[in-house]
Amino acid sequence: MIEFSRVSKVFDGRKAVDELDLVIPQGELAVLIGTSGSGKSTTLKMINRLVEYDAGTLRFAGEDVRHFHPETLRRRMGYAIQSIGLFPHWTVEQNIATVPQLLHWPKPRIRDRVTELLELLHLEPGQYRGRFPHQLSGGQQQRVGVARALAADPDVLLMDEPFGALDPVTRAALQEELRRIHALSGKTIVLVTHDIDEALGLGQRIVLMEQGRIVQQGSPLELLTHPASDFVRDFVGRSDIGIKLLALDRVADRTRHDEAVGGEPIASSSTLREALSAFITRKVDRLPVVDEQGRPAGTLHFCDLLEAQA
């Protein structure tokens, strides 16, 4: 879907992106991560031509992005940044309708699409469509930002630290939301972040960048179990690697379905990291597991946390 081959970008004589090779296949959720100044945002912005690259080739859907008219290209790609990106003088509905209006969709179709998206992002349409951004909480604003990026059903979703300004609870909720939307729509998503937990939690492919180059790319498991260098090991959190590995798997994967114990249950959709925390705080070695509907689903044993890793 998106192919970088030896792409470079120079700002003031300094290479912000240096001969980057990267292929993001259709339907993948790729996370670009790195310290500030690593070139991750520049890389993202080259995809929709907010930044023009200097050397190499960058293809979208098989064609050089330079062959597209910039506005046409951008309207085929959803774009979301931190919550301040909503237009403050427009209502939620007008904000979401931005791109469909640019594409001259008929009014009833735009209205239906807004309703659909508000429902998808768990915002009651009747209550929220007429509100202005300053009447929303940070998390609600960001939901609207995501809805706006999805509005015209784009081929690709580009997100530049979309959850950076949110409190941890809201951020976790929106990450879960994004995971759901990705599973539901199968869209190609490129997300920039500096939060390694966000990257490990969301990304199918993680692209770790430093000084305009890719240091390592791969699945979260690969990065945690086979870090290519000390830099990668430090970045993924040297002493926490074990804990982070646990965060990649769900309770459901390790549940013994034929057993039942008493006590306060844990949801099967929780991560093993959350389960570990529950074991420690409750001082037990067995936890009852319940499914989404709250029905008993079996038991998780403390010793099973060790199993089947790497």
Binding site: R74, Y79, I81, I84, G85, L102
Partner: peptide
Amino acid sequence: STREVAQGLG
């Protein structure tokens, strides 16, 4: 950022 997002949306 508002200007950038306007441009980014097309």
